[in-house]
């Protein structure tokens, strides 16, 4: 069998996996940021909604969430739009974003809460608004404090985006399993795939390490060389 063909198929899968990871992470960040703000700084209904959302996502398996979005949601939408067809990649991406948002919100909440109240009082005393304080005082520090958790989250998404294969999304694991069953080279293909995950996970870890070093500020983060 031609390894060129196999590697070509795996490259296509890798591209989708990287898309799911990167876009899932960014979407999760945007939504997670809002959830963290709501949970940390608001009260009443918006805080309650944020808490309920975060606990719902954290308390159920991501695979189940992907099934609900990939198979359940289209049924619901078809009641109003009978011809609606859900693109599995879009469904998986949505699921990964919604899932990652809950975790990222919690990382951010932890980082927000680690900024001492004295700095907030100083910012209030200068006459800053709540939003100015979040933007100019809390976030720049929280961002640095949570980089290690972010590295974890990215590596996690890289690997667990493979659950999307169960929605028939043509990501790396899906392409591997399809190509393996066509070629019967199961062991070879899965070993290559393991290597690919390992290389990209290491790449993410090293890249984030560089970012950590680059934006390190003494007193905000500690770096052990």
């Amino acid at each position: 069998m031609d390894y060129g063909f196999i590697l070509g198929q795996l490259a296509k899968g890798l591209e989708v996996t990287l898309e799911l990871t990167l876009l899932g992470f960014l979407g999760g960040f945007a939504l997670g940021f809002l959830l963290a703000i709501a949970r940390t700084y608001s009260g009443g209904i918006s805080k309650a909604l944020a808490v309920a959302y975060i606990e719902l996502i954290r308390g159920t398996p991501m695979l189940l969430q992907l099934y609900i979005i990939g198979f359940g949601l289209p049924l619901l939408i078809r009641k109003y739009l009978p011809n609606f067809v859900m693109n599995p990649t879009i469904a998986a991406l949505l699921g990964i974003m919604l899932n990652s948002a809950a975790y990222q919100a919690e990382y951010m909440r932890g980082a927000f809460n680690s900024i001492e109240s004295g700095q907030i009082e100083a910012a209030l005393s200068l006459g800053m608004t709540r939003w100015e304080i979040i933007r100019h005082v809390v976030f720049p520090q929280a961002f640095r404090i949570m980089l290690p958790s972010w590295t974890n989250e990215m590596v996690y998404l890289l690997k667990y985006s493979s659950l999307a294969m169960l929605l028939a999304v043509p990501e790396l694991m899906y392409m591997a399993s399809v190509t393996a069953s066509e070629t019967f080279l199961y062991a070879q293909i899965y070993l290559i795939v393991a290597g690919i995950y390992l290389v990209f996970a290491t790449l993410i870890i090293q890249l984030m390490r560089l970012v950590e070093l680059k934006i390190h500020i003494p007193g905000v983060t500690t770096i052990k060389r």
Binding site: E116, G118, Q119, E121, A122, A123, L124, S125, L126, G127, M128, T129, H136, V137, P140, Q141, R144, I217, G219, V220
Partner: peptide, 20 residues
């Protein structure tokens, strides 16, 4: 109150500088 605070300086026991 923010307009008032902007006109009243406050110096704290523990400095409370912005660390970043």
């Amino acid at each position: 109150i923010r307009k008032i605070r902007a006109r009243i300086g406050f110096v704290f026991q523990h400095f409370n500088l912005f660390k970043h």
